[in-house]
Amino acid sequence: MNVDGTVAEGFEPVGAAFLRNFETLGEQGAAVAVYRDGRKVVDLWGGVKNATAADGTGTGGDGEDAAPWEHGTAQIVRSATKGVAAAALLLLAQRGELDLDAPVGHYWPEFKARGKERALVRHVLAHRAGVPVLDRPLTPAEAADPDVTAAAVAAQTPAWEPGTDHGYHAQTYGWLTAELVRRVTGRSIGTWIAEEIAGPLGLDLWVGLPAAEADRVGRVAPIEAPATGGGLRLRPKRAVSEAYADPSSLTRRAFAAITPQPDENDPAYRAAELPASNGVATADALARFYASLTGEVDGVRLFTPRSVALARTEQSAGPDRVLVVHTRFGLGYMLHGSASPLLDEGSFGHPGRGGSLGFADPGSGIAFGYVTNGFRKSVTADPRAQALVRAVRESVGR
C-alpha cells in the first residue's frame, strides 16, 4: 500500500497508524491532516479513490476502481458537515445578526406551530429542539428542496418539550440550521459557507458540490468490519442494535427522515445542500477549518474566544434519546467523551457516520481532519479514526 504526503518530526506515530489502518482495519482509500498552532504537521493520503463494496457491487470498471487517491481527492463526510453548519450559526451570533437565546420562531414564525414556540436557537445547536424525526419522511428530491424541508420541520410536533432533553437530530439538524441561515441572511447555507468560510480560508469544502468539482470526489461504498478494531469494541451494545432495528424508535426514524436512503454517489445528491449529512471535503479542509476556529491560519481566524467557549461548553449530556448511548454536546459540536473520543477534555468537533472526523483541541493547538471512502455503520467512534486520534495523542504527549 502506497501512502504519500508528509509528517513533521514528532508526529511519526500518526503516519504509522495511518498505514496500519490499511493493513489491519480494511481501509481502501483515505486521507488525514493535522494542524498544530495553525501550521500543518501531518498531510497524508493513500489507497484508491473509489471504494468497492464488500459484495463487489458499485465497481466502476475501465480501471476506475484502481485510480489512486491523490492529494486533493475529496469525499462526502456525512455528519462531519454538522460542525461546519454550526459555525455558520455561531459566526452569525458573533457578528450580532443572530441571538442564540431568541426563540427559533422569532426568525422563522412558522416554526412556532405544535408546541415549539419555546424552542431557542441554542436548543437547535445542542440537539434539544425536540424534532429529530418527521412523521412523514421526505424523499431525496424533497429533502433537497429548502421550501419543502422548512415546511416539514415547522409542521412537526416535537417528540419532547424543546429544551428539556436531548437527542441527536441526525437529518433535521441540517434543515433547522439551513432555514435559520436563510431567514437571517437571505442566502442558502451552502452559499453562505462558500462565501464566509470556505472562500476566506481557501478550503476544498462544499455543502452543495459544484459540478466543476465532481471529478475530484471519490466513490463511497460499504465495507466489512475487521475482525478486531484496534482496541475498540466493534459490536454495538444490544440496546443500540435494538433501537436501530425498531421501525418505531426515535433512532430508526431519525436516520430515516430521508426515505429511501439516498445514493451518496449520485451527482444530484451531492449537489444538494444538506448541512447535516452531505458536505464534501478534503482531510486538509476539515483540519484547516478547525484550526481557524481556535487560532489564526494564514491570517484568518473565524471564532473569537467567546465563540470557542460556546462551542465547547457542555449544553447537553447523558443518555441520548436517539443515539441511546451517553453523548455530550456544546453548541453545535460533540464534546470529548465515551461516545465520541476526541483528543482530550476541552476538544470539540464532529464525526461523520461511517468514519470521517474533524475536531479542534484548544489546549494543545491541534486541529484534525480525516476522510475515508469506506463506509461502516459506526456513528461516532470509527476504529480507523480513533487509531489516528490515539496516535496524535501520543505525538503531543496528552
Score class of each variant (00 low, 15 high):
E224I: 11
R219M: 04
D263T: 04
D215H: 13
D266P: 06
E213T: 05
N265E: 07
P236A: 07
R252D: 08
A227P: 13
E224R: 09
T228D: 14
V220Y: 06
D263K: 03
S249P: 10
A239K: 09
Y244Q: 09
P226F: 05
P267K: 03
A214N: 08
F255S: 10
V217D: 02
E224H: 08
I223K: 03
A225W: 15
P260N: 05
I223S: 01
S248I: 07
S249A: 13
T259P: 01
F255T: 11
A256Y: 12
S249Y: 07
E224Q: 08
E264R: 04
V240W: 01
P236H: 15
A254I: 00
D215C: 10
P262G: 01
R219E: 08
A239S: 11
I258N: 08
P247W: 05
R238D: 06
L234N: 06
P262F: 02
A221E: 02
I223R: 02
D246P: 01
A243V: 01
E242W: 02
D215P: 13
T251C: 15
P222V: 10
D266M: 13
R219V: 06
P260F: 01
A214C: 06
T228H: 14
T259G: 12
A227I: 13
A227S: 14
D266S: 06
G229E: 13
G230D: 02
Q261I: 03
E264K: 12
A225D: 14
P222Q: 14
P267S: 12
V217H: 04
R219G: 11
G231E: 10
S241R: 09
S241E: 12
P267M: 09
A227C: 11
A225P: 04
F255Q: 11
D266V: 12
A212C: 02
A245T: 06
I223F: 00
I223L: 01
T259Y: 09
A254D: 00
I258K: 04
R219S: 15
R270K: 15
D246R: 01
A221T: 15
A212G: 00
G230H: 02
R216K: 14
T251D: 01
A254R: 00
I258A: 01
A254M: 06
